[in-house]
C-alpha cells in the first residue's frame, strides 16, 4: 500500500466566476498530521468541503487510500474512512455526551428496519462495546464526569473535545479537523492538542485546517499553504518556516519558530 493516505489532484471550485479553489493538488501522508493553512479567503474551507463531499467540486479528483471518492456523497466519504469535524462545533444536544459518542458507531454501521425491530443480540453486544469504548474515550479526553450529562451543558471548548472524540469512535483512516481550537481558551487549546496527538497516535491520519500557527507548528509534520485558491507552498515545518513568501504573506515574523 502506498504511503499516501489522501491524494488530491487538480481540485477546482468556482462560485459565479470567483475562483475559490483553482487547480489545487497535494498529498497527505499516512499517519501524519498535515496542516492546511492560509489567510481568510484562501480556499481552505472550500477545499475541505469538497474533499469531504459537502460541496461538489467543478473538477479534480481525490482518493483516500487509493479509493476514488470524487462524485460520491458526503456520507459515502465517511463510509470510506474520511471523517471531518466542523468549524462551528456540532453535537446532538438532546443526547447525553456518551450517546453522542455512540452515535458515531451507529451512524457508521447503519441499521436496517428488520434488525432494528427485532433488536438482535448482536446489536445489543455492539451497543455495549460502543458504550465501553465511549467511556474509555471520555476518560482519555477528561470528560468522563460528563458521560450522562446532556451535551448541551458542555462549554464550547468541551464540545470541541467531544467532536474529536466522536471521530475517534468511528475508527477512521483520515480525519479533517476544521479549526479545532478556534474560539477557545489557552488551557482548553492544550487539551485539544493532547486529544489530537492521541487521535494521531491511534494510527489516524489528520488534515488540520487551522489559523492558530503556534498549534500548527507544534503539531504538524507537513504543511500545505493555500493563497487565493491556489497552492502556494507545501513541505515540512522547517521548509515552510524558511519559505520567505509564506512567512511574509501568511505567518509573519512572530512565527519563525515554535513557541514551545
Amino acid at each position: 500500500m502506498s504511503d499516501i493516505c489522501l491524494s488530491v489532484r487538480n481540485l477546482s471550485k468556482h462560485y459565479r466566476g470567483v475562483k475559490a479553489v483553482d487547480g489545487v493538488s497535494f498529498d497527505v501522508m499516512r499517519g501524519s498530521i498535515t496542516g492546511l493553512i492560509g489567510p481568510n479567503g484562501s480556499g481552505k474551507s472550500t477545499t475541505i468541503d469538497c474533499i469531504s463531499g459537502f460541496t461538489s467540486a467543478d473538477c479534480g479528483e481525490w482518493r483516500v487510500d487509493g479509493r476514488v471518492l470524487t462524485g460520491t456523497s458526503a456520507h459515502q466519504h465517511s463510509a470510506a474512512g474520511l471523517v471531518r469535524t466542523f468549524q462551528n462545533v456540532r453535537c446532538y444536544e438532546s443526547m447525553s455526551v456518551l450517546e453522542n459518542l455512540r452515535m458515531a458507531v451507529v451512524a457508521k454501521e447503519g441499521v436496517g428496519l428488520w434488525s432494528a425491530f427485532l433488536g438482535s443480540l448482536r446489536a445489543s453486544a455492539a451497543d455495549e462495546a460502543a458504550r465501553q469504548h465511549g467511556l474509555e474515550l471520555l476518560e482519555l479526553i477528561g470528560l468522563s464526569a460528563y458521560a450522562e450529562a446532556p451535551s448541551s451543558v458542555l462549554s464550547y471548548g468541551q464540545r470541541k473535545l467531544l467532536s474529536i472524540a466522536s471521530t475517534m469512535m468511528s475508527k477512521p483512516r483520515l480525519v479533517i479537523l476544521d479549526e479545532p481550537v478556534a474560539g477557545i481558551n489557552p488551557t482548553m487549546i492544550l487539551r485539544v492538542e493532547d486529544a489530537i496527538r492521541k487521535l494521531n497516535a491511534s494510527g489516524v491520519t489528520i488534515l488540520l485546517c487551522e489559523h492558530n500557527m503556534d498549534l500548527v507548528m507544534r503539531l504538524c509534520d507537513r504543511i500545505i499553504v493555500l493563497a487565493n485558491g491556489q497552492l502556494l507552498a507545501s513541505g515540512t515545518v522547517d521548509e515552510i518556516q524558511a519559505d520567505k513568501n509564506v512567512l511574509e504573506a501568511y505567518l509573519g515574523p512572530d512565527h519563525m519558530r515554535p513557541t514551545s
Binding site: 469531504s52 466542523f86 453535537c91 438532546s94 451512524a107 466522536s166 468511528s170
Partner: peptide, 17 residues
C-alpha cells in the same frame, strides 16, 4: 437514534456516515 440525529444536526449525521 438515527432519526433524532438527523433532526438535531443533519450535517454532523452525514459526516458520520
Amino acid at each position: 437514534r438515527i432519526f433524532v440525529s438527523i433532526r438535531e444536526n443533519e450535517p454532523l449525521a452525514i459526516s458520520q456516515g
